[in-house]
């Protein structure tokens, strides 16, 4: 479970935080943090992100393999 943040893409705008239904993300100044133990893989943040900085961990793994 969980998402991965690409920090080179992230513009720390908080769009993902605003939409997270389980409140597992937080933006501290410029640093976005995510509690992947709470994440439910709903992908709302993946779609919401204006710059494509968030991806599902399992999809990233699938790509690597």
């Amino acid at each position: 479970m969980g998402v991965k943040i690409d920090r080179t893409k992230c513009c720390y705008c908080g769009a993902c935080v605003s939409i997270c239904p389980v409140n597992c993300m937080e933006l501290k100044e410029t640093r976005l943090t995510v509690d992947n133990n709470t994440c439910i893989n709903c992908q709302a943040c993946v779609r919401m992100c204006p710059v494509g900085a968030i991806a599902l961990q399992k999809e990233l793994k699938a790509k690597e393999e």
Binding site: S18, R47, M48
Partner: peptide, 14 residues
């Protein structure tokens, strides 16, 4: 107080 938005009610801006 839950202020989270629903995806349908949000626009993504850049």
């Amino acid at each position: 107080k839950n202020t989270a938005n629903k995806p349908y009610d949000m626009d993504s801006g850049f």
